[in-house]
Nucleic acid binder design. Structure first.
Length: 880
RNA sequence: GCCCGGAUGGCGGAAUGGUAGACGCUGCGGACUUAAAAUCCGCUGGCCGUAAGGCCGUGGGGGUUCGAGUCCCCCUCCGGGCACCA
């Protein structure tokens, strides 16, 4: 019926009648990217071409980009790399009949904006708004098919209201608490820095030295999810390296907790964690971390001075100094001894900074014969080494050379001797458990998440601090499962929840963004905001500057002045896109039911553990409280590689090798930039930019243009109506449909473009090409160069948008041919080829091969020993 | 130190165990042009050869196989992650 459609190509293209509608394409005669791109960008905007309707019978497909921090520096070339890949996938999936959700937004809380505010006094929201306008314009210039009606901004109170809401749920369920912790303090910047803002002991911004200070911090109990975060990794389709990084970060290890009584004390004991309870008989000393609270209690008078001095020194060292492996082990004896619970032997207790207070119990049993660190320490301080495991593998002369850290048979271990270490570990743990002196446990390297920052530009915490004497009056729904309490200057305070109706708790206007210098956020100076009357029954607040309302349920309270870290907003943004304007819930469950979690998540590998772990944690929590029905947020993840400067070095202002997307677009057009970014190499690879290289892509797009549009701006005369008649063209077309589709699905976008180049090079050499072939080519090109494709699509009689036209199907029958090329080898070396009938058998092919002079020459004087024939591929003659 | 990933022409890269170098850049030669640009055509891994063709060649060394860039073992270099986690 539809004669315009080549066999196997879907036939439901809709064509407009040019006379009855205003012309929508430009009238360019040459390929003029700037005109064409501006024209179609405007068309898409006006028509809402990429709106993703919530009510659709189509299956959904959700493609998510990691949203950017809208910095004042503008778009970096790395942004459009990932964004182009996801856009190609989105446009392809639309062609495949999916209702595609492809949103964009702004991760806009952040340090640079605040630093700018400190310097200039400009409100961060003002700077932010300006940066977003700039970023949005830059992103739009690339022609991405985002549904801009779903744009979100983490600093918008309408958004962070729900970030605060999620925090409240965490708080109420006992997953948020406060703790006094050492944090990085930068005296020069007069502020606390997050771990990720400290590089090698200096501030990321300004390169100033930083030091440790103890401050009261909010902490999220991510460790409660450690097991699930680890276990569920297995189900994710993520790059292996990223999964491994998360696995290592969580760092699960199985072992035992063992209690060592301290000799000559009432009932002081030291609890240790070990993964090797089988080596317990080899414990010749113990070590406690300098910060360990037991140090003060166990140290004997004659050692007190030395221990005090050592502890003081250790705590003053930076983490960097303490973890410097090159340095010698240090430590001091406490004068105290512990009793090994398995054999009652008396062993000395030392303090040493190679034991960390933050892991396990902050104390270890040291087994120098079977642990490298303990061995190094023991040899430094002349502590005995007792071998308890025999190395089964090594040659005899090395066998008993300590330290041996592998498994083996136990020796010198009483009734446990001769057992294998695995078995012994189990039995020794059992024995200790029976006696109440130990138990099997699991430890994680993962620490609870330090969640507060002493900054202005972040989400305020939706809690107040109330005096401890008022806590009894607090209604249960405003209390967390575990009370959150701290003492300061002789007074005790409890944290109490704001009522949800109080959200969003907005940032106040402040006089100065300058940190107070005491380790508090600038908010601490704003007493008009900080001091409130708090309703212990409803969780409502009013400013303390107002008269206190009647009734004894109102009490005086102080707001929390820390703010949340930048990671908070990005922990759940993938959900907000589904329902960006909802003021009743973070996301409507009905909309979640339809859209679900992203089907594809594309972004940089630099967030392998931070954002991707935090977001999994929050998502699992939201799953637990019934907000979402799916326990994982990102099932399929892809990391785009880094683009280096032309010199092969990382792009940086100081090197002067930065490529600015805007100037590339100005020079060559957005379509060329998009296609070139994809053509550079495999998406996941690190690869250098070459400004000359883009010329090849520009030539390719120009070539496509000229194959379709002649110099007068009309359709090329060589394009003829009707089916494709040239069988070679048809086969190559179907090969191209197949390869481009498969390559897009696997994000092999460089080879997809190569294939289209091969095809265009081919039709350039033909005298005629059918209209359907031309349309199919344009359809395939559309995800890569959407502006050009829209233009050509319409000028070939198609109706915009090309994005809504169905993706062509290839016909497997068209890929077959009667004859196949078989390669001839003699002894594995290429000696010619020939086209043979597909049905030809080995003998026939061998005969053909032997007729060739070149093959014959290499067989001359030899006997054929063997012939290997892979039908349709290769014939290898083994001859000697 | 441990754990990953990688190494292919002058360059970016392509190759289900089956013609290594697709596609593109660069370079060279040619067509068109008064000329240039643009465009088009041809060549472009090394060595030998007028050519046909031959030999060598995917970081280095071994192995498996009729056949290895691809699989296995050892080594070198580069990139990334972790780093006293008991």
């Amino acid at each position: 019926m539809n004669k315009l459609t080549p066999p196997g190509v879907s036939s439901s293209y809709v064509f407009s009648t040019p006379e009855s509608s205003t012309p929508m394409a430009t009238n360019c005669t040459d390929y003029e990217p700037s005109r064409i791109e501006a024209h179609w960008r405007e068309y898409w905007d006006r028509n809402g071409t990429f709106r993703a309707p919530d009510n659709s019978d189509k299956p959904k497909y959700y493609v998510l980009d990691m949203f950017p921090y809208p910095s004042g520096a503008g778009l970096h070339i790395g942004h459009p790399e990932g964004y182009t890949a996801s856009d190609i996938l989105s446009r392809y999936k639309r062609g495949r009949g999916f209702n595609v959700l492809h949103p964009m937004g702004w991760d806009a809380f952040g340090l640079p904006t605040e630093q700018y505010a400190i310097k200039t006094g400009t409100h961060p929201s003002e700077t932010n708004a300006r940066n977003i306008v700039n970023f949005r314009a830059q992103i739009k210039r690339l022609g991405f098919s985002y549904d801009w009606s779903r744009e979100i901004d983490t600093t918008d109170p309408g958004y962070y209201r729900w970030t605060q809401w999620i925090f409240l749920q965490l708080f109420k369920r006992g997953l948020a608490y406060v703790d006094e912790r050492p944090v990085w303090w930068c005296p020069e910047l007069k502020t606390v820095l997050a771990n990720e803002e400290v590089i090698d002991g200096r501030s990321e911004r300004g390169d100033h030295p930083v030091e440790r200070r103890n401050l009261r911090q909010w902490v999220l109990r991510i460790t409660a999810y450690a097991d699930r975060l680890l276990e569920d990794l297995k189900s994710l389709d993520w790059p292996d390296s990223t999964k491994r990084q998360q696995e290592a970060w969580i760092g699960r290890s199985e072992g035992a907790e063992i209690e060592f009584p301290v000799a000559d004390t009432e009932n002081e004991t030291l609890k240790v964690f070990t993964t090797r309870p089988d080596t317990l008989f080899g414990a010749t000393y113990m070590v406690v971390a300098p910060e360990h609270p037991a140090v003060r209690n166990i140290v004997t008078p004659e050692y007190r001075e030395a221990v005090d001095r050592y502890v003081r020194q250790a705590t003053q060292k930076s983490d960097l100094e303490r973890t410097d492996l090159a340095k010698e082990k240090s430590g001091v004896f406490t004068g105290a001894h512990a009793i090994n619970p398995i054999n009652e032997s008396r062993i000395p207790i030392w303090v040493a900074d190679y034991v960390l207070i933050s892991y396990g119990t902050g104390a270890i049993m040291a087994v120098p014969a079977h642990d490298e660190r303990d061995y190094e320490f023991a040899t430094t301080f002349d502590i005995p080494v007792i071998q308890v495991i025999q190395n089964p593998g090594a040659p005899a002369e090395e066998r008993d050379q300590p330290p041996y850290t592998g498994p083996g048979k136990l020796i010198n271990s009483g009734s446990f001797s001769a057992l294998d270490s695995d078995e012994a570990a189990r039995r020794i743990t059992e024995r200790l458990a029976e006696e109440g002196r130990g138990r099997a446990t699991v430890q994680y390297r993962l620490r609870d998440w330090l969640f507060s920052r002493q900054r202005f530009w972040g989400e305020p915490f939706p809690v107040v601090w109330i005096p401890e004497e008022d806590y009894d009056r607090l209604e249960p729904h405003l209390r967390p499962e575990q009370p959150v309490h701290y003492r300061s200057e002789g007074r005790g305070w409890y944290a109490a929840a704001l009522d949800e109706s109080q959200l969003p708790l907005e940032l106040p206007e402040v006089e100065s963004y300058q940190p107070s210098g005491t380790g508090e956020s600038p908010l601490a100076n704003e007493s008009a905001w900080v001091d409130v009357w708090y309703d212990t029954r409803t969780g409502a607040t009013i400013a303390a500057t107002e008269p206190k309302p009647d009734g004894d349920r109102w009490i005086s309270a102080r707001r929390e002045t820390n703010t949340m870290p930048q990671w908070a907003g990005s922990c759940w943004y993938h959900l907000r896109y589904l329902d960006p304007h909802n003021d009743q819930a973070p996301v409507d469950p009905k909309l979640f039911e339809y859209w679900g979690t992203p089907d594809y998540y594309i972004g940089g590998a630099e967030h392998a553990v931070l954002h991707l772990l935090y977001a999994r944690f929050w998502h699992k929590f939201l799953h637990d409280i019934g907000v979402v029905t799916d326990p994982e947020p990102f099932k399929k993840l892809f990391h785009q590689g880094i683009i280096l400067g032309e010199d092969g070095e990382k792009m940086s202002k100081s090197r002067g090798n930065v490529v600015n997307p805007d100037s590339v677009i100005e020079e060559h057009g957005a379509d060329s930039l998009r296609a070139y970014l994809m053509f550079l190499g495999p998406l996941e690879a690190m690869k250098p930019w070459k400004s000359q290289g883009i010329e090849g892509i520009v030539r390719f797009l120009k070539k496509v243009w000229r194959e379709v549009i002649d110099r007068e701006g009309n359709r090329q005369g060589k394009i003829v109506d009707g089916e494709e008649t040239d069988s070679q063209t048809l086969r190559l077309l179907h090969e191209t449909i197949k390869k481009v589709g498969e390559d897009i699905e696997a994000l092999r976008l460089n080879t997809a473009i190569s294939q289209m180049m091969i095809f265009v090079n081919h039709i350039q050499k033909t005298d005629t090409v059918s209209l359907d072939t031309a349309r199919t080519l344009v359809r395939l090109l559309a995800p890569f160069a959407p502006h050009l494709a829209e233009e050509l699509w319409e000028r070939l009689g198609g109706s915009p948008s090309v994005d809504h036209a169905p993706w062509p199907e290839y016909d497997p029958a068209r890929l077959e041919s009667e004859t196949v090329k078989v390669v001839f080898q003699v002894n594995g070396k290429f000696r010619g080829d020939a086209l043979v009938a597909k049905s030809a058998d080995q003998d026939a092919v061998l005969a053909t091969a032997r007729e060739q002079d070149r093959v014959a020459a290499h067989l001359d004087g030899k006997n054929i020993r063997k012939v290997i024939y892979v039908p349709g591929k290769i014939l290898n003659i083994v001859a000697t």
